[in-house]
Design a protein around this nucleic acid. Structure first.
Length: 295
DNA sequence: AGTTGTCAAGCTAGT
DNA sequence: ACTAGCTTGACAACT
């Protein structure tokens, strides 16, 4: 099991998510920020290596405005050496990378331009992982999307649009059960029609489910992953006390996490901790997992 | 130097 | 028909 955290490391004093305003766009600025982000990512990965953290999510702003029509610069070619260097580091240490395009990426949108922009954004994500020469275990996770007052039709639209995606996107795309609209069961229905692997979000499953116990749900999701996809990735969080249902906790609840590890005993997966204090909780989780002989 | 409003993109629930 | 909230850091303009 690899344990990791998304996008930000608060300990090392740099971020791999620096960006700028669209109004200020220049190719020069894009390259400058990207180089900064690549440099910081390397620092984060080194930190991770030193702390037994082998899973990390790269933020979507890594190459700012990469999928926007204003961007004509060939960042993948111009920064190729740096990408290869990062990729080598990742491969050399057997790390795993994921990405998570945000709420605007909707493969089941009823609007043509939303779909087009979504595909462009997915192509950018795939290109980034490709240029680092990572294998197909490096994944891009999205939600199914909106319901648009008709879930069955919206699922059909997802399936239809999924089938038209470029192969290099399909090779990495995975879908996530969400906390409001599309449950694990819905995702499994989509999987049947597309073969897209399902990233299982344990916290979302608590918010929205069809009575499947945790271990059973994990097994169902695991079966959607082929050998070339690697083992199941799971997102983990817990409820932030006093906030709306679905709000992510600020730090990991050690008791709940122990319970989680017990309930998933014998199951194989990589674990992404979607918890606000990031690497701090990852370190705690790793220490707990070691004490329970899971690492 | 510190504070505050704003940022490419959408959907949903509530008024 | 319209707006706030999601979730949330980081930029950029303004004290």
């Amino acid at each position: 099991m690899k344990i990791g955290y998304p996008c930000i490391n608060w300990s090392i004093g740099c971020t791999a998510n620096t960006t700028f305003r669209l109004a200020n766009y220049t190719d020069q600025l894009l390259l400058e920020k990207s180089i900064n982000n690549i440099g910081c990512l390397k620092k984060i990965l080194k930190y991770n290596l030193d702390h037994d953290i082998f899973l990390f999510r790269i933020g979507s702003d890594f190459i700012p405005f990469a999928s926007h029509e204003i961007c004509n610069v060939e960042w993948d070619l111009m920064l190729k050496e740096a990408f290869i260097d990062i990729g080598n580091f990742i491969k050399e240490h057997n790390m795993r990378i994921s990405m998570h395009p945000d709420q605007f990426v909707l493969l089941n949108s009823e609007k043509k331009d939303v779909l087009e922009n979504s595909i462009k954004e997915l192509v950018y994500h795939a290109k980034l992982l490709d240029v680092m020469d990572l294998d197909e275990t490096a994944k891009i996770q999205i939600h199914v999307g909106g319901v648009y007052d008709d879930k069955e039709k919206s699922i059909e639209r997802f399936v239809k649009n999924y089938k038209k995606l470029p192969e290099r996107v399909k090779a990495r795309l995975i879908i996530e059960n969400d906390d409001k609209s599309y449950s694990l069961k819905d995702c499994l229905e989509i999987h049947k029609k597309t073969k897209v692997p399902i990233i299982f979000d344990a916290f979302h499953h608590e918010c929205l489910n069809n009575e499947e116990p945790l271990a059973e749900a994990v097994k169902l999701a695991s079966k959607t992953w082929k050998k070339k996809d690697g083992i199941l990735i799971m997102d983990y969080s817990s409820q932030k006390m006093g906030e709306r249902k679905g709000a992510h906790a600020t730090n990991i609840d050690e008791q709940l996490f122990k319970k989680f590890l017990e309930e998933t005993k014998g199951l194989d997966f990589d674990l992404m901790l979607e918890i606000k204090d990031k690497e701090k909780s990852a370190l705690k989780a790793i220490s707990i997992a070691k004490s329970m002989k899971r690492l």
